[in-house]
Amino acid sequence: MISKKSVSGIAAVAVALLVTAACGSDDGSNSSATTTEQTHPLRSSLAATASSAVRSGLNTAQQVIQDAINAALAAAPITFDSGSSDLSGTDVATIKVVAVPLKGNDAKVEITTYAQDENPATAKSVAKARGDNIAAELESAGVEKSRITVKPQGNPTDQNIKVDEAKIEVVGS
């Protein structure tokens, strides 16, 4: 797994590239005496490369976290009985496994839960309770509440959605 230290290392290299680009001049002139600011092509290229490296490192770290979450959910999905928001022992174990890659970084996650009911308010309420229960378990496993968003959906219309199964996605840091 890519650690926070790895991303910090990438950022440090990017900063070094930016500083080198900002300080250097390849024409031997004294750039501080120039009153008109000009961007040197090499500097622009180095700045773009540094920025891209930082973005890539962050995206890679988030993808590694998402891959770990996906593996846990594929092995043991978080599922609910119809009309219920109760978590089983297996669900709690899965949530604890999901929490592991979320520790030691600032990745934010979105929990999407669904429910189906003739009464739309009931469906929304059950979906929210499902998401809140998962969020509470993640929090008790060491994931800060501020990094967790619950997105409940009652009576989804997409035929491909598994109504009684939760999704957890990394949405940023």
Score class of each variant (00 low, 15 high):
T113W: 07
G131A: 05
A136C: 10
V54Q: 01
E144A: 15
L18P: 00
L17Q: 07
R130L: 08
V100N: 11
Q116D: 14
V64I: 07
E137P: 02
T122N: 11
A33D: 15
C23Y: 13
L138D: 01
D81H: 13
D27M: 09
Q116K: 14
D117A: 15
A22N: 14
T113Q: 08
A48M: 12
V13L: 15
K103D: 10
D27R: 11
V109C: 09
P120N: 09
A99W: 03
V19P: 04
A21N: 02
A107L: 07
N133C: 09
G142R: 03
A141R: 02
D67F: 06
Q38S: 15
L138K: 03
T20V: 14
A71W: 03
H40C: 04
G57C: 06
A53Y: 03
V13W: 03
G83A: 09
S84A: 13
G83D: 09
S32Q: 14
S84P: 04
N70D: 15
I95N: 00
E144R: 09
R43Y: 11
R43T: 14
A21P: 01
Q38Y: 13
V64G: 05
D81Y: 12
I134E: 01
N70M: 04
I111T: 04
K108F: 05
A16F: 11
R43D: 07
